[in-house]
Design a protein around this nucleic acid. Structure first.
Lengths: 225, 225
DNA sequence: CTGAAATGGTCAGCCTGCCGACATCCCGTA
DNA sequence: TACGGGATGTCGGCAGGCTGACCATTTCAG
């Protein structure tokens, strides 16, 4: 990929828009680009040199693995998000990132290079710090959810959240393109496939939503709270 | 509190030791100090101007409150830790900090002031970012614990952790000064008082530990894993 | 010293939601 | 169009651990 394209890609990123064009060009030099199709694995925490990734396009999921080999979908990330060793520490949990949509594009930096850039750009540093702060807040929220709410409330909250992020309005209905399986959703809200299926059918019965394998139509958003 | 004392307080902090003395003196000017005794509340997220705190001495606990008024001990912090609006965003969960030990000392900055300092000190920015990253990692771990482990495993893990942080060795035994109630512990590992009591007695029965209201003596650390 | 409040101990009952098992449905591919 | 694998639907069983209830013990202020 040539520098022009890289420049264009980074230019509009919320994280890098605090940089002037000279600084941006400098970053372009240390950037690596990568593309992936649906189902392809983008990064593996243990067989990878320490890298920070930003997602330029598409949707990916981050899957965490515990000692016993259980897998849990830890996060769904959209365009603009960061993943990999973005905490700037090199001790990672066992996790990998996999493309959920087609045409995923992301760029990455070596941890060391990125640190050096941050050290020279205070505005970027501040921006980046806030970014991570956001992630921490988000994680704290998820934790609180798990502590305070039951499965039903967590699913409802998840759906409301999803709708507000990616839903498109169509005459009192909100339509969601569904790229997640019940298993994925279960994993995200920390439950099991069966329970999710059951709750989905319950919601359908109550006429709160309709769904198929490809989309979810929310008819009564208010009922999810 | 005079500048000399402030200077001395900040000098050895892991976060601020990347600054030279001129920079440090500058920070001293915007610092506020506060002391508290056991049981006193140090900060309340909603009736407080946005501030970042660092704990200079003593132990505190962070308590989170949900919409229904349920309280959960979110964290126990030791000397050197950060709390308050340290993510540099001004939207906080409902929480407060309360002194657990006597003679708690902490210093605080206004969010804006602190941001300005960070913007001018890239090294500090980097250090600070790593700090928050560390907190994020810790939070992710707690989340994973909740997802993967049952209550017994969580309690064992919690005790092992505690022992490694604050335990003092005495002839094959590890002694912990116990400033937490069963209720506190339950809250931290996301369980209930009764269950914690029950598990503690089980551990005592198996001769893995002894405990009273004031201390916990771990006799067989290995058995906790 | 005394009484109230906080903490710890114990138990029966029950409920959420996990687990295993199996049937069915959908969809891409050959 | 037939096949196979992944995704979804459904159900009974059951257990971890929460709930409420009550009492004993310790702590601490007045």
């Amino acid at each position: 990929m040539n520098l022009e394209t890289k420049y264009w890609h980074l230019h509009n990123h919320k994280l890098f828009n605090v940089l002037n064009s000279a600084e941006l060009k400098e970053i372009c030099l240390i950037t690596n680009f990568k593309t992936a199709k649906k189902g392809e694995i983008i990064y593996f925490s243990h067989d990878e040199s320490n890298r920070v990734y930003t997602l330029k396009r598409g949707t990916i999921k981050i899957v965490e693995i515990d000692e016993k080999g259980n897998e849990v979908v830890k996060d769904i990330l959209q365009t603009g998000d960061l993943f990999g060793q973005f905490t700037l520490t090199n001790q990672a949990l066992d996790e990998y990132a996999v493309a959920v949509s087609d045409y995923v594009t992301c760029c990455s930096f070596k941890l060391d290079d990125f640190e050096r850039v941050i050290e020279r750009n205070p505005a970027l540093a501040l921006q980046y710090t806030k970014w991570i702060g956001f992630r921490l807040k988000r994680m704290e929220n998820r934790y609180a959810n798990l502590v305070f709410k039951d499965v039903r409330a967590r699913l409802n909250g998840f759906l409301a959240d999803w709708a507000s992020k990616e839903g498109t309005n169509h005459a009192h209905e909100i339509i969601l393109k569904n790229y997640l399986t019940h298993q994925d959703i279960a994993s995200l809200i920390c439950s099991t496939r069966q329970t999710v299926t059951q709750l989905f059918n319950e919601l359908k019965e109550k006429n709160i939503l309709d769904y198929s394998r490809t989309e979810i139509i929310i008819k009564n958003l208010a009922a999810l709270n």
